[in-house]
Design a protein around this nucleic acid. Structure first.
Lengths: 354, 354
DNA sequence: CTGTTAGCGCATTCAA
DNA sequence: TTGAATGCGCTAACAG
């Protein structure tokens, strides 16, 4: 701790205009290119001169200028990241994963929030373009499709995270979660617990995630040879309800009336809404009803009862996306990634006793 | 929106090397300085030429080069932000606030995580330096003091957020939460509810926050003319316990034995730990014991019972810090900010009946 | 091995 | 009002 900064040379007071390689060249009595070479450990230089100049640079508190370097090399070593909301813990984890890998690769992260707004997303990306980032990462599971068309026009390597369109794989690079698999995992779990009347509670926002989780539900039901009742699929139709908790609250009663004993909810917030509705209706979870969420948000493990859920591992998703981008920047070929979610069993589900 | 291009032509296919003002100058049959002027709405140009050139630039899908511009103007319109962890919802909110104001001011955010590590923080800041950011924001409530000394050496305008040192106000700019006030608010609330035997449960990490919340506790007790018992102040001494929940769990029993009826906990996680310990000991909250937290993390409103807590409003703190930085960049004088937290009454506290 | 020269893309002074 | 010339700080040919 203490010794770290005993070398006062690293950060010290510096006058208005910073020291440049020419300044140190003048002082060393050499040309600025010699200084440039010395500082960058070029083989085209005598080790003697190199050491001398490095020492001098230290003494003069030289801090290289990334801007000038970028202008020359046409590389900024910066990537732009767009997320819908930074405050959302979900994206927070994602960005954390992105930043970790970026730093390991010597890249900086320029962060922007879109708040789910199309124009703001475009604005952020144009801005990244303007700043000549080396690559772009866009995370948004509810984005319009035309957007992706425009994105393909970019020459800047771009990786899309959980993008809301089907035709991935062809036009651009992406990493996404396998929502279909996730849905199946959730429902298979309920089936294993002996449930047969199982519902899906979706948000009806038209997102790919919503549709594919429902598909996963159907696949699992089919594979188990279980009957499917239209009344067991409750999709919110009211566009005025934007809060997931409220959706869960509002949609739960009709599913209970339809006689289901287990519900797979679109996500944890919906499940929590359903849970709250259960409390109001004096329905015990998991005694009377089993509930499965999706996302594994922090909250899900703390509520009562702790929620059985499908986990997305956002940190890993961020790492994967950034790793893919790094590969692209190095000219490597990459393959789109479909990450597998997994089930986290907690206390909101239990064996169905006839 | 200060979007450079509102038309869809903005995003279009472009060849390897981007169009420069010289390219468009050549095509327009003028000099590149004329183009430069036209594009920047210089008064030194005829409106005719300006419109023509702007139109041409559009057609040629010209995207100005921020790097070149920065090299010339010595301004990057970029600020560096260091937080301990991006994934922490707490900092997520902070960064969201920062980003909002930054964008409004036409600034970009370069984000870095320090993971509470001194070296990584220094590294991030040096990197920002290297990239010639216009300003720096550092958030960390548990940072070493000498660090701040070093920070003052920077010529780059810097605002510290919730920094862990007393001598703010003099050497550098800062925005922080008034922990002392927060502590008083929590304890005053308990006093109003009729409690007289009130405890403080601290983490003992030597942080300013811990000390000042305790101080707030003492002030409130004094002002109410209440006696103070040393046994009512439980500060964790075991450095091996790093998890706040565990601290709460472990320290609770001794406070109960000391006969307190209300406890003000260092933060929500500690309070939740205490709550869990209560459950194990069959102590009902709030019937037998009232609990107050600090931070108002999302979790606090969802647990049972929902936690009465002191709220920090991190979004506002981020906005304030960034606003302060913007003022600094504009050469304005700024005053350090001490934000007032406020009490959020929920169900973990209740009137003490004798 | 080292110095000279020439840009990278733009803003800006000085002339015209 | 416009053009020519210069420089921001650096890398990278090309010569010596």
């Amino acid at each position: 701790m203490l010794s770290l900064f005993t070398l006062p040379t690293a950060i010290l007071k510096m006058s208005e205009r910073k020291i440049s390689i020419e300044d140190i060249a003048r002082k060393a009595g050499v040309s600025h290119s010699t200084v440039s070479r010395a500082l960058r450990d070029s083989p085209l230089i005598s080790s003697q001169v190199r050491e001398d100049i490095k020492k001098l640079a230290q003494e003069m508190n030289y801090v290289p200028n990334a801007i000038a370097k970028s202008l020359q090399t046409q590389r900024t070593y910066t990537v732009g990241v767009v997320v819908t909301s930074i405050a959302d813990p979900f994206f927070g984890e994602l960005v954390e994963g992105i930043e970790q890998i970026a730093r390991l690769a010597g890249l900086n992260v320029l962060l922007s929030a879109s708040h789910g707004d199309f124009e703001q997303e475009i604005g952020a990306i144009e801005n990244f373009h303007y700043r000549r980032v080396d690559g772009i990462l866009v995370a948004d599971s509810r984005i319009s499709k035309q957007y992706t068309k425009q994105l393909t026009q970019f020459t800047v390597p771009t990786v899309l995270i959980n993008i809301d369109t089907e035709d991935q794989g062809k036009t651009f690079h992406s990493v996404a979660i396998d929502d279909r698999l996730g849905g199946s995992l959730a429902v298979e779990h309920l089936i294993e617990m002996g449930h047969t009347s199982i519902a899906y509670l979706g948000v009806g926002d038209g997102s790919k995630a919503d549709q594919q989780r429902l598909e996963g539900y159907r696949i699992a039901m089919n594979q188990a040879g279980l009957p499917q009742n239209p009344a067991w699929v409750a999709i919110n139709q009211d566009p005025k309800i934007i809060n997931d908790i409220d959706i869960g609250k509002k949609m739960l009663p009709q599913l209970v009336e339809a006689g289901v004993t287990g519900i797979f909810c679109y996500n944890d917030m919906v499940a929590i809404g359903a849970l709250l509705a259960c409390k109001e209706l004096s329905i015990s979870v998991p005694e009377d009803l089993s509930l499965v969420g999706f996302d594994n948000i922090a909250l899900s493990s703390y509520i009562t009862p702790p929620l059985t859920t499908v986990s997305q591992r956002m940190l890993e998703m961020g790492e994967s996306a950034m790793t893919m981008l790094v590969d692209l920047l190095q000219g490597k070929a990459v393959e789109n990634l479909l990450l597998s979610p997994f089930l986290v069993k907690r206390d909101s589900t239990r064996t169905y006793a006839v």
